[in-house]
Simulated assay, not measured.
Amino acid sequence: MSKYLLNKFLYTIDRDADLVERYREDPAGTVTWWESELANRILNCPAGESSTWLSLEPAEREALSTHDHVRLFELGAHPFLTLTLFIAMFERDNTEPLEYQKAFGQRLTHFTLPYPDIST
């Protein structure tokens, strides 16, 4: 499992408003596109610098493709990366202040210490 690549997906999508919308509307298609086009690009390097060996594991691909933030947490995705991206995608669907954030946290309450390892 590549927590690095999982977190890289969350990080890169969250930093581009167009990609946030693309991921909201077509999560599976965005994951497939991102993995083939951006996953192996080296962050903060000139265009053309890339690796060839990184790929998401099937469980990671499935969780990303279904917006399953609980499963992403179980897999070791960093909760702050997941939360900020999911706020950008879904907070607008709620009417009460912090309604989405509270629901996000509520779905994680079954976890007890120690939490899944989020180190990369």
Rank of each mutant, 00 (worst) to 15 (best):
F9S: 02
F9A: 02
L10C: 04
T12H: 07
I13V: 15
D14P: 01
D14T: 14
R15G: 15
D16N: 14
A17F: 07
A17R: 06
A17W: 00
D18S: 09
R24L: 11
E25V: 08
D26N: 15
D26T: 15
D26G: 00
D26Q: 14
D26E: 15
D26F: 13
P27C: 08
P27L: 04
A28P: 01
A28Q: 13
G29S: 05
G29K: 06
T30Q: 01
V31P: 02
V31H: 04
V31N: 03
T32K: 13
T32E: 14
W33D: 07
W34N: 04
W34V: 08
E35N: 05
E37I: 14
E37W: 11
L38H: 10
A39D: 06
A39P: 02
A39I: 08
N40M: 07
N40L: 07
N40C: 08
N40H: 07
R41A: 11
L43M: 10
L43S: 12
L43P: 06
A47F: 13
A47Q: 14
S50D: 08
S50R: 09
S50Y: 13
S51T: 15
L54C: 13
L54M: 15
L56F: 14
E57D: 14
P58D: 11
A59I: 03
A59H: 06
E60F: 07
R61T: 12
R61W: 07
A63R: 02
L64D: 02
L64H: 03
S65A: 12
S65M: 05
H67R: 08
H69V: 02
H69I: 07
H69Y: 15
V70W: 05
V70R: 10
V70G: 04
R71L: 11
R71M: 03
L72W: 00
F73L: 07
E74A: 09
E74F: 04
L75T: 05
G76S: 05
A77N: 05
A77L: 03
H78I: 12
H78C: 11
H78K: 11
P79V: 04
P79A: 05
T82F: 02
L83Y: 04
L85T: 01
F86W: 03
F86H: 04
F86D: 03
M89E: 02
E91F: 01
R92G: 14
R92N: 10
D93F: 10
N94K: 09
P97K: 01
L98Q: 11
L98A: 10
L98W: 09
E99G: 06
E99N: 07
Y100D: 03
Q101A: 13
Q101C: 07
K102Q: 12
K102I: 15
F104E: 04
F104A: 02
G105K: 04
R107F: 06
R107C: 10
R107V: 11
L108M: 07
H110G: 13
T112K: 09
T112M: 06
L113N: 10
